[in-house]
Design a protein around this nucleic acid. Sequence first.
DNA 1: TTAAACTTTCAATAATTATTGAAAGTTTAT
DNA 2: ATAAACTTTCAATAATTATTGAAAGTTTAA
Lengths: 167, 167
Amino acid sequence: MKYQEAKEKFISTWGSLGTLWGINKAMAQIQALLFISTKPLSMEDIMEELQISRGNTSMNLRQLIDWGIVTKVLVSGERKEFFTTEKDVQELARTIAKERSRREIKPVIKVLEEVSSIEDDGTKKTQELIKQTKALKELTDDLDTLMNKLVNQKQNWLTKSVLKLMK
Amino acid sequence: MKYQEAKEKFISTWGSLGTLWGINKAMAQIQALLFISTKPLSMEDIMEELQISRGNTSMNLRQLIDWGIVTKVLVSGERKEFFTTEKDVQELARTIAKERSRREIKPVIKVLEEVSSIEDDGTKKTQELIKQTKALKELTDDLDTLMNKLVNQKQNWLTKSVLKLMK
DNA sequence: TTAAACTTTCAATAATTATTGAAAGTTTAT
DNA sequence: ATAAACTTTCAATAATTATTGAAAGTTTAA
């Protein structure tokens, strides 16, 4: 496998993984492209490389910027904008974990809390609802905390030592 | 908030969470419904409760069974089939983690491995591709292993102690 | 065996989500 | 001020994904 093929494989795999994780294809592909690029890319570069429209590129770049994954960079002597993505995988994971927690997990925990704290009217079905949503709430809470803590360990000693402990 | 409202809120929240995680809405809602039900439900029950068609119910139940989350149960004296879901959240998490790892994460690791082991032709861009996909591969591998180990601890002592350690 | 009770399949259709492209908007250089 | 260079917006359209419902398939009881 040569460079071009490998690059395309990486970008398309990352793209379809994105879809699976609630991030759209173009967004994931743009991030992938920037991730392996040796220098910041302009909108033109991205459009050309991924064969997508200007509008699409613009909208998805904005989303990536909202996620905190991509940043605009100024290239001196150039008028147009250039973009790069976070290049350190640890930092990338940290950002994604934080955003997913904020956007997806926290709101669910909130609903589970509300549902699990309805008044117990003594019926079996109400008790089951309370019991099960409470259990789900606790699990979700634990996993969310764990994920954030793990991924926030800058030095990553914890992941390493926990892994070693278990391997 | 009374029972009916709480139930609907739970089912619809779980349903849209599903969409976000690559599981379709009906599938997630069926699971949610079974999760808070005090007894196994028939296809009729599910169709009625969620207002979805027979075909949809049948297909999504099958998927849930494929995932290992839902099982058929025989109710004596009844001809039709009844269904329940795993009621223990820990076990549920274990099953989901294992399946997601197998279906989604492992294949990505494989691609990353392939891409990161292309021949280094000495160019900057090839070296960047190799370096970045290798880093991504290692991170994905670590997180996958960690997730599986964590979730596989039947007694859950590890999650608890790690959490305590960090709180 | 047969017919009623039940489940699955799948082509058609609906609903949702992504993408385009051109017009409107913004910035910068002169 | 104005026009060129560039970006954003958004209604229209395309692509994808989910859902329906009726026909085909299967199982069970008599």
